[in-house]
Amino acid sequence: MELRAPMCDTFIHVDVVIPTQTKYLALIASIGERIAKELDNFTGDREALSYQLNLVLTEATVNVIKHACEDDIKNCVRVTINLQEDALNIKVYDYGQGFDLEAVPLPDLDHPGESGMGLFLIRSLMDSVTYTQHADYNVLEIIKYLK
């Protein structure tokens, strides 16, 4: 983890790499929770935002862990969190096959299943969610505007 002094429009930049193991979820999530407490100008519900960042980081990381190839040598998840003046930008990098975000079906809330809620929760709680596939990595980019 790296905490940098302000550069350009970035106030806090966190960059974490963890193995694709669920035991590290609490670590990633706690960083998000902690950042929510540092937002000086945020006037909304801080407890709710703290929970939301915890959840979004957990779900996004689980998504990578679930789809990670076990014998892949690049068996890790990289998460960056950028706190800017009016937005929080989260990027979750994976090195797997990738997927089509637009093809992920919405869960049927009238007949809830035991899985398939993760991306729905991220999209419900955040302002922008995109997934981009590159030659040797993919990135899920999540933006939350801070009011």
């Binding site: 999530a29 959840l55 779900e59 299943g113 899985s115 809620m117 929760l121």
Partner: peptide, 9 residues
């Protein structure tokens, strides 16, 4: 804290 897998359980 609970995530979607916890709700699923």
């Amino acid at each position: 804290f609970i995530d979607s897998s916890g709700l699923g359980a």
